[in-house]
Simulated scan of single mutants.
Amino acid sequence: MELRHLRYFVAVAEQRNFTRAAEKLFIAQPPLTRAIKQLEEEIGVELFIRKARGLELTSGGSYFLAHAQQILDKVEATIADTRRIASHRKTIFSIGFVPSVFYGQLPLMVRRLRQNKNLEIVLHELKTREQVEALKSGKIDIGFGRIRIEDPEVDQEKLFDEPLIAALPVAHPLTAAPPTMKELADMNMIVFPSGAGPNFSDLVHGLFRRRGLKVNVIQQVNDLQTALSLVASDMGFTLVPEQVRRLQREDVEYVPLADSGITVPVLASRRHGENPNAIMRLTNTILAELVENRIAGRYP
């Protein structure tokens, strides 16, 4: 089996059509069809069901697709890192993060790591589920997110629980005192991110639902900055992690909640069973110090 077989298979699986896949790959259709047939014979499994309206993946094909994509991603990441190392003579350490964790002490960790002149830090803004896939493919070395993702190939460590606060339009009546979840449920709500879960939006919805409260979502947006801009436009409120208050805006007020125990976790994700190298050991040491500072209320 060659890498081209995996690339051909992924293209056909994405297009569900040999002709379109051949056009995407810039090859003729007959050799593409033969390559897929050879792949099926080598694996001993039928990967596609041929139907009049196109191709469908078998259960084995769906499983093979997920792992083929990971292998190709790993190859691309390895090639990119090799080129970086060759040109810079540096070790690459890649970090995935969701934006809301980058308003706290994570930038300090990055600054301290960058003091090592032989180390190049690469940052990737990724949702937690995307971080899990990026860890498995080798695109990143560690990820920071908020959502629990069950995957045997990835370990998630809870660093600490962070209180949620309400972001409200400046001078809104509810900024006079900490609002209750019930009071907030009577307002229009802006949630982020939009799209398929699990994500931060699902976590926030669950906090209201477990209290028997129904929220009126007026807008779903892709990112925190857009959500805050809509709050500033007096369209509603949103809930954000406490460290986001460092993102100062004149048109938005951050208010603690009256209800106790309204928190979200900060999680570190790493590849399962991987022995930490020197860079990861340094990262873990810095993290332990930063977490201790956060829990004790000491900020740099």
Rank of each mutant, 00 (worst) to 15 (best):
T283M: 01
V217E: 03
Q69M: 15
L247G: 10
E183T: 03
V45I: 02
R146L: 14
V252T: 02
I218T: 15
R270N: 09
V264Q: 09
L228H: 04
K74E: 13
M1I: 05
A68F: 00
L32S: 11
I149N: 11
V12I: 10
R246M: 04
L159A: 09
T238M: 00
M280Q: 15
D161Y: 02
G297W: 05
E76G: 05
N277H: 03
L72G: 08
G61E: 05
I27N: 10
H5Y: 04
V154M: 13
M181G: 06
T226L: 01
A28M: 01
T82Y: 05
A296I: 09
F26T: 01
E125M: 08
K139Y: 03
L267R: 10
P198F: 03
V240N: 06
V221D: 03
A232T: 02
L108D: 15
S100V: 06
E23M: 11
G145P: 04
N118S: 09
P276F: 08
T19L: 10
H272M: 06
A258S: 00
I147C: 03
G261P: 00
D251K: 09
Q131G: 02
L72K: 13
H205I: 11
Q220T: 06
R281V: 06
T91M: 01
V10H: 07
A296N: 14
T128Q: 02
A86L: 15
E76P: 01
L164S: 02
K51F: 09
A196N: 08
A171W: 13
I95F: 02
P276S: 06
I36R: 03
E250A: 13
A177K: 13
A80Y: 07
L282P: 02
V132I: 15
V191G: 06
K158H: 04
R50C: 04
A21D: 05
L168P: 14
V10R: 10
P173Y: 03
L203V: 12
R16Q: 14
R112D: 11
I49K: 14
A232P: 08
R211M: 13
P193N: 05
K24H: 10
R53H: 07
R89F: 06
A28V: 01
I190R: 08
D186K: 15
S59Q: 09
E253T: 11
A227L: 01
A22T: 09
N118T: 12
V12F: 12
V101M: 08
H272N: 07
G54M: 06
P198G: 12
I190T: 03
R245G: 01
A196M: 13
A68N: 03
L239R: 04
D73C: 05
V101P: 05
R53D: 11
L108Y: 13
